[in-house]
C-alpha cells in the first residue's frame, strides 16, 4: 500500500474550489478535520438510516385504513394521560430525591406523647430553614397528587375507549397493579412526616391488616413492623416509599409501556 496522497479525495482542494462564505468554510473545515479522525460520517449515516426507518414507512393509521371519519378526535388528548402519569412520577422522583437529603425517618426526640419527633422536626426544618424547601415539599406533594389523578383518569380513558380488550388484558391487569402501587406510594408518603394525621392514617392501616383473617398479623408485622405504631413502622414506610416502591413501580411502568410499544396503541374503531 502506498503512502502517497490520493489526489481525487483531496477534500481541502475541493473546499478551495467552492465559493463559500466564511461560516460555511469554517463549518466544513471543522467537519472534515473531525471526520478524518473520528469517522463522523459513519454515525451520521446510521442516524440518517434510523431517521428514515422511523419516519418514512409508517403504516396507515387505523382511521385511514378503514376510512373512518374523525368522530373520535375528542378522545385523543386523553391518550396523553399515561404519559402525564410518567411525567408527574418523574417530577415526584426528582423532588423526592432532594427532600431525602434532609428528611430523617426517626421517632426519636419526643420526651412526652405528642411532642415533635425527629421526623416531624426534619420536615419542619425543610419547610422553614432549607432554601426553597417549602416549595420543594409542596412540589413533591402536588406531583404525587397529579400522578394519582392522571393514573385514575388514564384508567378511565382506557376503559371508555375499550382499549383493554384482547390482546391487551395483560396490560390492564398490570395497570390495576400499578394504580394500587401508586396509591400505596401516596399512603406511605403520607405517613412519613409523622404528624397527627399520618399517625392515625397508619393506625387505621394496622387495624385493617389485623382484621384480615389468616394473613392479618403477618401482614401487619411485615408492613407496619408490629401491632402498635412506632419507630419500626416509620422505617418500614420509609423504606417502602424511597426504596422498594420506586424500583418496583419504575420496573412495572417500563414493562407496561414496553407492552404498549410491542402491541401498539389500540386506536378507536
Amino acid at each position: 500500500m502506498s503512502l502517497k496522497k490520493q489526489d481525487e479525495m483531496d477534500h481541502n482542494a475541493w473546499l478551495k474550489k467552492q465559493d463559500l462564505t466564511v461560516i460555511e468554510t469554517a463549518f466544513l473545515t471543522t467537519l472534515i478535520w473531525l471526520d478524518k479522525r473520528l469517522r463522523i460520517v459513519d454515525y451520521l449515516e446510521l442516524l440518517e438510516t434510523m431517521y428514515y426507518r422511523a419516519n418514512l414507512q409508517m403504516p396507515k393509521s387505523h382511521t385511514e385504513q378503514y376510512d373512518l371519519d374523525n368522530k373520535f378526535w375528542y378522545w385523543y388528548p386523553l391518550y396523553s394521560l399515561g404519559s402525564l402519569s410518567i411525567i408527574a412520577y418523574l417530577v415526584a422522583a426528582v423532588s423526592g430525591a432532594l427532600l431525602g437529603f434532609y428528611y430523617s425517618p426517626s421517632t426519636a426526640g419526643a420526651a412526652a406523647q405528642g411532642d415533635p419527633t425527629a421526623a416531624y422536626d426534619s420536615v419542619v426544618m425543610i419547610m422553614t430553614d432549607v432554601q426553597f424547601g417549602f416549595m420543594l415539599r409542596s412540589i413533591h406533594s402536588w406531583a404525587a397528587q397529579f400522578m394519582v389523578a392522571a393514573v385514575f383518569l388514564h384508567m378511565l380513558r382506557v376503559y371508555f375507549t375499550g382499549s383493554y380488550k384482547e390482546p391487551r388484558e395483560v396490560n390492564w391487569i398490570l395497570g390495576v397493579i400499578l394504580i394500587g402501587l401508586t396509591l400505596l406510594f401516596g399512603f406511605s408518603g403520607y405517613v412519613l412526616p409523622w404528624k397527627q394525621l399520618s399517625f392515625w392514617a397508619a393506625q387505621i392501616g394496622v387495624e385493617m391488616a389485623l382484621a384480615t383473617p389468616l394473613v392479618g398479623e403477618w401482614a401487619a408485622q411485615l408492613m407496619f413492623g408490629g401491632f402498635t405504631l412506632g419507630q419500626a413502622t416509620l422505617v418500614r414506610m420509609y423504606i417502602l416509599h424511597v426504596f422498594v416502591l420506586p424500583f418496583v413501580v419504575t420496573g412495572l411502568v417500563a414493562l407496561h409501556v414496553g407492552i404498549v410499544w410491542v402491541q401498539g396503541i389500540a386506536e378507536p374503531h
Binding site: 421517632t107 419526643a110 406523647q113 405528642g114 411532642d115 415533635p116 419527633t117 416531624y120 420536615v123 419542619v124 419547610m127 415539599r137 409542596s138 413533591h140 406533594s141 402536588w142 397528587q145 394519582v148 389523578a149 385514575f152 396509591l183 401516596g186 399512603f187 403520607y190 412526616p193 409523622w194 404528624k195 397527627q196 394525621l197 399520618s198 399517625f199 392515625w200 392514617a201 393506625q203 387505621i204 402498635t228 405504631l229
Partner: peptide, 21 residues
C-alpha cells in the same frame, strides 16, 4: 402543602382523613 400537629398516640383527632385520593 400544609402541615399539622405532631403525632400523638394518646389523642385521637376528631377527624381522621387520608389524602383526597
Amino acid at each position: 402543602a400544609h402541615y399539622g400537629e405532631p403525632a400523638n398516640p394518646g389523642a385521637t383527632p376528631g377527624i381522621i382523613l387520608p389524602d383526597w385520593y
